[in-house]
Design a protein around this nucleic acid. Structure first.
Lengths: 223, 223, 223, 223
DNA sequence: GATGAATGAGGCTTCATTCAT
DNA sequence: CATGAATGAAGCCTCATTCAT
């Protein structure tokens, strides 16, 4: 967590540091990103960074926090007007495409998400994910709940498994749709629309009700 | 790719280097793994490594190649006697648990898989994945095909989406089941049996035929 | 020396700074002790420290001064009721054990004494010792004088040499008895009672009168 | 301990590094001595130092080892022709003056001894002392033994206490005689001859036999 | 008189790669 | 073909002190 000093800083100074740090970590990842470079690019003394953040990881976690808030806000804004009640799976498809689009249009968010998800160092990854997942899980859980309420998601489906799929698949969509070499099957990078439609179809089959309202029971494993 | 010199090397020398390199990359990842340490532990001169491999990445890719072959062989051996024809989804569940078990019992394979999947540097990741995916995709495709043949997997299901799910989920299973802090929903690390059962249930619902043989059509998206 | 500003400070503020500084220097020594930490722990601004003290050394010297006064008072109180007249060497032994005990029970005094005695920087050490020795020498000289008056210390012994032994040995006792690895012979850390008895026996032999009152002349060196 | 690489080094390179390191640590002590400076002055790359020594402490310990060997050899050479059998205490006085002289004439040895004895960091001090004390203790013990054999030291004296005095006093003599501000009583820095004579007189009184051969028993404390 | 943000030199250590032997 | 010493840039982080507010 940033120090109180950070919060008292003039906005321009904070912005300069955040911009420099985002650029650096986005292009080089956490482990290889350099505080030297960040300080130089931000036009501040190297030591100043340590007045604002405990250490490198603390700075990185803060950036990730900012990014996840930014992404969450953008998605909330996009999702609000979607016709979840009338066409849940269509709205979900639309939302996922917007999700992909956000990362296409905000390379910094993409790169930070990549950096978080791909960071090798377990300590780093766990520390940052803890912060980030807190934001995401709540929103995704609400999304599932609303599907249940409107009848699009079967009440007796395994909602936890659905949530797990979302948590697992969404970062993959964001990364693989915008970076080459990550998806060898769905061709996300070339044709995201088709790929997303196929993914949603899977979920609909597994967790959705029939169009005619007939629910198809899927028993949870008795194990 | 290793140089011709590498291939002409006495077996013990090669083995010593491979063992040392696996141990090092397994415990410290690619970026932080040290050639110094590898050379020391293998009992060879630092310079020699550069006679066998172009650079650090070349060595790492070779190890990943070896590991994927090893893993593939182990899984093939385990899968052979499973009752795919009689109980496809049960066999799949069994296979996935064995998959998780393999990585639990072979920390080196786990760590290398982690290193590959978590490596940030795009160049590194793409280079290594290209090699690795070649092995995996073939095996997984066969697994799906056999499901179709035996009638467990619907002929009109989106087999590509199934393959994508496998490719995406299996590394996640391997890592999240054996490292803490990676799975915030399914609790893979604590109760892998239940988690796997839930995942397979999803696939069965999406891609499987009914127990009574009635297939439930899932139209591919018209998009 | 503290500035006049320091003397005008509210007592609680002074106490907070002294406490924080003692804790810091005690645990990290002079060279490695950090003014940053002291200011933070004391709840004062970093800059304020420089309003009260010229620099780091000035602050440290002040603490040492306080500690030596504190130690001197404690020892004076302990020494007062001892039977110097009846059993000088027994009283001295008792006093030295109390001396060791004081440092065992007051880690801050121990650490400050260590910091003073072990500080490499000549400038620092000389500056601090000058202040500290003033207190000690007077007390130790009185102790010798009283021995002479009561006849326990020979009048013709080399009292300066006795004083030098005390000055040299007492810090050693305090440190070596309470820190491992400083005394390779007497085993002060393990069995202080025995070690002190042996040291006092040496002094008694060198500077004391016989039990039967016969003094054994030790001529000062004619050099 | 230096690495094997260090031992294989050309003599001039080793000498350059040792000279630079001695000069640096001698003038600034261990904690404040800088490897940067040492490398620059020695004309070697900073990284090379880490091919020869594990870390800063390892280098410092090696220098201390060299110095203690050097000092030990010098003293052994000086002590050999002294008339220990005829005039033990005179010889001891002479030896101690030579000891002081050695450090006066070899400022590097003086400074290293100071650095070892005054290093605040317990870990450092203990590590280095372990190496150094090994050399000294043996020599000093022999010196006492020879005194016992020739009858100058009483057989029933507390030889351990004598050894402890030597171990404690000799570094003090070396330092205090050659650095101002360390000895507030004996005036070692101004008149070492007199000071040494007084110290030896103390020991003679405590541990020596009478000139006329009458031994004066000093019972070890019954405790 | 108090504050605390800014400084920036300097600290130790790591490491992939080269190249003379 | 093997060796291993040398490199030197780059890494993160610490800290006493200053000075504008």
């Amino acid at each position: 967590m940033p120090t109180p000093t950070w919060d008292r800083l003039p906005t321009e100074r904070r912005d300069a540091i955040v911009a420099a740090a985002e650029a650096e970590f986005a292009s080089r990842g956490f482990s290889r990103g350099s505080l030297n470079v960040i300080a130089r690019e931000a036009g501040v003394a190297k030591g100043s960074l340590f007045q604002y953040f405990d250490d490198k990881l603390d700075l990185f976690a803060h950036l990730s926090d900012l990014a996840s808030i930014r992404i969450g806000a953008a998605m909330a804004k996009h999702n609000a007007p979607l016709p979840w009640a009338e066409d849940y799976w269509g709205a979900l498809t639309d939302s996922l495409l917007a999700w992909i689009g956000h990362f296409r249009d905000h390379p910094v968010d993409l790169a930070l998400t990549a950096a978080v998800n791909l960071e090798l160092d377990t300590e780093v990854r766990v520390a940052v994910r803890e912060v980030v997942n807190r934001h995401y899980l709540r929103g995704l859980q609400q999304l599932i709940d609303s599907g249940v309420e409107t009848g699009a998601v079967r009440a007796d489906a395994d909602h936890g498994a659905f949530l797990a799929q979302l948590v697992l698949v969404m970062p993959h969509l964001a990364l693989a749709a915008n970076m080459p070499g990550l998806d060898p099957v769905l061709d996300l990078h070339e044709d995201p629309d088709a790929a997303v439609a196929r993914v949603v179809a899977v979920w609909r089959a597994a967790f959705g009700t029939w169009a005619d309202g007939v629910t198809r029971p899927v028993r949870r494993p008795s194990a």
